[in-house]
Write a protein that binds this DNA or RNA. Structure first.
Length: 279
DNA sequence: AGCCAGGGTCTGC
DNA sequence: GCAGACCATGGC
């Protein structure tokens, strides 16, 4: 990976198998948006992250080499060879289609608490509204970083709120779940750092002690918050895929990387022209 | 108006 | 163990 510094920008050269926009907007993260000039922006780990992709380069605005190496390189999973992963997945014809049509999706390594809270909000909800609610959560209870930019509120902060106060973000019935999650994390009843070393089953079982966390949300948190890529979240879209294409279960080539396959299939089922007509 | 959205809980069999 | 009602909200 070649890195070049130009004034305030850090440029990463020779980026392969990475589509920035699709990766940050494909429903695994909820705080990203695109500016008028095609720059992707979000608050990540309490800082404004501003990135642009051109052909084979990633341009990080206002960052340092140290910051890139300690945070952003890992966040975007840039040290993992996704070309190799896609080659493996291509032995299944549907995954071949999915990975070729939507080349460059990666699994982001996101903050554990933020991911937990976000996917509790995601239940029985749609992506635009999930984004809106999380935005409101940050504006109301996060720290102001800059004009219009807020950090994701800590579990301690949310645990200090009443259910009534959480009502302002209009999360509906999910409010009580958010509060229960915050209380269990803030009190130490559940330690997210301990989950790091657990296998997938233990991870999901532990997360499901939180109210409002069932199999699907637990799998999403395992995958997107803990980078446990053998997790396989089944939402309504993936459920369709399974009944339409894999009635006998996932193909063998997904073994151990079910979560990465899942993200391609999810995005493919929702966006591909192949599924455009009828239902 | 009714259905759907990166579901889960609770009840009743 | 499993189906079915119910849960808030907003977009279409």
């Amino acid at each position: 990976m070649k890195i070049e510094i130009k004034s305030e920008d850090l440029i990463v050269k020779d980026i392969k198998c990475f589509d920035l926009k699709t990766t940050v907007l494909c429903g695994q993260a909820f705080r990203w948006s695109e500016t008028a000039d095609g720059i992707m922006q979000a608050v990540v780990k309490g800082e404004i992250l501003s990135v642009q992709q051109t052909k084979n380069e990633l341009i990080f605005k206002n960052t340092s080499k140290e910051k890139f190496e300690s945070e952003w390189c890992e966040y975007f999973d840039l040290n993992t060879n996704y070309h190799e992963i896609c080659q493996t997945l291509k032995s299944d014809v549907h995954l071949k289609n999915a990975t070729e049509e939507f080349y460059g999706i990666r699994i982001l390594k996101q903050d554990k608490w933020e991911t937990l809270c976000s996917f509790i909000i995601s239940q029985n909800n749609n992506i635009p509204r999930i984004m809106k609610i999380i935005n409101s959560l940050c504006e109301n209870f996060g720290e102001k970083i800059a004009d219009g930019a807020y950090s994701f509120p800590t579990a301690e902060k949310i645990a200090s709120l009443t259910l009534d106060e959480i009502g302002i973000i209009k999360s509906g019935f999910r409010g009580k779940y958010i509060l229960d999650a915050a209380q269990k994390i803030a009190s130490g009843e559940i330690d997210l750092n301990e989950i790091e070393n657990m296998n997938l089953q233990e991870t999901e079982q532990t997360l499901m002690k939180i109210k409002g966390v069932g199999p699907k949300v637990a799998a999403c948190v395992a995958l997107f918050g803990f980078y446990k890529v053998d997790a396989f979240p089944i939402d309504v879209w993936v459920k369709k895929i399974m009944s339409e294409l894999y009635p006998d279960g996932l193909p063998a080539c997904t073994k151990g990387i079910e979560g990465i396959a899942q993200q391609y299939l999810f995005h493919w089922r929702r966006n591909s022209v192949c599924f455009d007509v009828g239902e």
